[in-house]
């Protein structure tokens, strides 16, 4: 977090309203569309506020590279990438330390709901392209990914959706936008399973007391619910 905060972002909450007019527990507008890439086995497009992500699933198919084959279950290959034009400073194409780590935690966020054992020896490729970034890219990508996996017909025990809980001006808020993420105190991306609300991804950086962490977890549980509804609605609309 930058220490030199521009004047207009010093106050991120005014009269219980945030800079984009949302309340503290309000998500940004969510838009999900299923089946946007005809050549993929499953795909989804999602917008959460100004963050826009494309997700595509190819597979289950022959596993490549072959030495990575697991004879007992399918291997989920996740590749998360911020496209060069997705942020104000151009992102250099190709994997970075950041994108490598996010690909890893995203894989872990989804693996536990997929019945990978149904496809031993095969691979499922999941590609997540961030076409515009305004905070919450990994959370948005995960929400899109599980819709794309469902569209590909891959058996899962539930959907996974994700958001972020943050601390801005000493108060907890859901689904941070760009300036809130850049100039706020804490950011905690979190992913949950629709059926049991167990947590499949959690990262945090900034500052949380024990109480704040506890509150953040229960806020997340509530905030993620509309995302599950949006995922289901998008899938139902597609198959109607």
């Amino acid at each position: 977090m930058a220490s030199n905060i521009p004047e207009k972002y010093k106050t991120l909450i005014k009269n219980n309203k945030r800079i984009d007019g949302r309340t503290l527990d309000e998500l940004r507008p969510v838009k999900i569309k299923v089946g946007v890439i005809p050549s993929a086995d499953g795909s989804a497009y999602i917008e959460i506020g100004n963050t826009k992500v494309l997700a595509a699933v190819h597979g289950p198919k022959e596993m490549f590279p072959r030495h990575m084959i697991n004879e007992d279950r399918a291997v989920l290959n996740v590749r998360y990438a911020m496209l060069p034009f997705s942020t104000s400073e151009r992102v250099r194409p190709g994997p970075s330390r950041r994108s490598n780590e996010i690909s890893k935690v995203t894989r872990h966020a989804l693996e536990s709901v997929i019945f990978l054992e149904e496809y031993p020896g095969m691979g499922i490729d999941l590609t997540l392209d961030i076409i515009q970034a305004d905070a919450g890219t990994r959370a948005t990508a995960i929400t899109a990914a599980s819709v794309a996996l469902a569209h590909a017909g891959i058996p899962m025990k539930g959907l996974v959706a994700a958001t972020a809980i943050g601390k801005i001006n000493d108060r907890l808020a859901v689904d941070l936008n760009g300036p809130e993420d850049n100039f706020g105190q804490t950011d905690m991306p979190i992913a949950m399973i629709s059926t049991n609300k167990n947590i499949t991804l959690l990262q945090m950086d900034g500052d949380f007391s024990k109480e704040e962490f506890k509150t953040a977890l229960s806020m997340a549980k509530k905030a993620i619910e509309p995302l599950f509804e949006a995922q289901r609605a998008a899938l139902q609309k597609y198959y109607k």
């Binding site: 536990s112 167990n198 499949t200 007391s209 024990k210």
Partner: peptide, 13 residues
């Protein structure tokens, strides 16, 4: 206070 957290591993918690 906590300043950083990271969950890893394929299972839920």
């Amino acid at each position: 206070n906590y300043c950083a957290m990271q969950k890893a591993g394929p299972s839920e918690m």
